[in-house]
Amino acid sequence: MFEARLVQSSILKKVLEAIKDLLNEATFDCSDSGIQLQAMDNSHVSLVSMNLRSDGFDKYRCDRNISMGMNLGSMTKILKCAANEDVVTMKAQDNADTVTFVFESPNQEKVSDYEMKLMNLDQEHLGIPETEYACVVRLPAGEFARICRDLSQFGESVVISCTKEGVKFSSAGDIGSANIKLAQTSNVDKEELAVTVEMQEPVTLTFASRYLNSFTKATSLSNVVQLSMSPDVPLVVEYRIGEIGHIRYYLAPKIED
C-alpha cells in the first residue's frame, strides 16, 4: 500500500508545471524515504531529478517500493480538477496498475477521487556523480527567469560566465547581442533577493536557451535558484520545493565542434 497526503495540493501542481515542458511521461519511484523521479527529455540533453521526502508529507506510507509510470498530460488534467486549497492524497495498492488521486476541500464537504492508469516506462537511469562545482551561484528565481526570457529573443544559445565579481549572461544572434551582468550583492538583508557567488575557479559555458527557459517553469516553487557549474560538465539548476524536497535540472553544455 502506498499513500501520500499533502495538505497543499498546489505544491504538486507546481511540480507538474515544472516538469511537463520537458517530459511527456515519467516514473515516480516511491519508497520509504519518499518520492523520486529521474528522467531525461527525448533528446537526452537535459535531465530532471526530483525528490520529495516522506517527512515533508502530512501523511506518508509506503509498505513496498513501487514505481509508477505516469503520463504527465493525463496527470495535468487530473490535477486541474483540484482547487489550490484542496488536500491531495495519492494512493496505490502494491503491484497496482492504477493510481488514485483524492482531493478534499478544506471543510471536507467535497471529496473527489480520480483514478489514473499507470504506464510501463523504460527506465533509463543515469548515475550522476557527486561533484564539487567550480562555481555556485544563487540568485532570485524570478530574476533568472527574466534573464532567460530576455536573452532567448537574441539567440539560441546563452553563454554563462562566472567570476568572483559576479555572473554574466550573454546571447547573440541576427538582431544583435545582449549581455546581462549581475554583481554579487554587497550587503544581504534578505537572502531571497541576494546574488551570491562561491567560486573556486572562473567558468564559462554555453547552453541552449530553450532548455533554460523550460527550467524556469519551476520558478513558482522557490524564491531562489542555484546554478552550479564546472568546466566541461553539465549545468545544475536547482530549486527547493518548500521544506519537502528539491527539483534539479541537468543541462549538457554546447561544446566546440
Binding site: L126, G127, T206, A252, K254, D257
Partner: peptide, 14 residues
C-alpha cells in the same frame, strides 16, 4: 562553431 552535447557524454547509465 558549437554543437549540443548530450548527457551521455558526461554521465553513465546506471
Amino acid at each position: 562553431k558549437t554543437k549540443q552535447a548530450t548527457l551521455m557524454n558526461f554521465f553513465k547509465k546506471s
